[in-house]
């Protein structure tokens, strides 16, 4: 997995690329650790993420848990292809905000 990070005054956008699976947890955990005291809005842009599995979904829920605990908000943006299909069958949008546009 590759991660790009863009920050502004109001938000932090993490753009994930390639895949998010079990073997990527160490790198993802580094992102999550940095959110422990973060108050800005967190966005995960998945427009270039090609594949996600159940472990990857679990990591997103973990990030949501930490952000919520801190009083922040988290959004997932533009899932595509296989990732979008996983989102559809898991109905992840019932628990995490998912948007399909720049927000």
């Amino acid at each position: 997995m590759q991660i790009d990070r863009q920050e502004s005054k109001e938000s932090i956008v993490f753009s994930l690329k390639e895949k998010l699976s079990f073997k990527d947890h160490t790198l993802f955990n580094e992102i999550v650790s940095s959110l422990e005291t973060e108050k800005r809005r967190i966005v995960f842009d998945l427009s270039k993420l090609e594949m996600i599995d159940s472990a990857g979904i679990g990591m997103l829920f973990l990030a949501q848990k930490i952000v919520s605990r801190n009083g922040g908000t988290m959004t997932i943006r533009n899932p595509q292809g296989q990732v979008k299909r996983v989102f559809d069958i898991t109905s992840i949008d019932r628990q995490i905000k998912v948007v399909t546009s720049e927000e």
Partner: peptide, 9 residues
């Protein structure tokens, strides 16, 4: 949680 992933890995 984060510890679970690390432990399993």
């Amino acid at each position: 949680d984060a510890d679970v992933f690390a432990r399993v890995f």
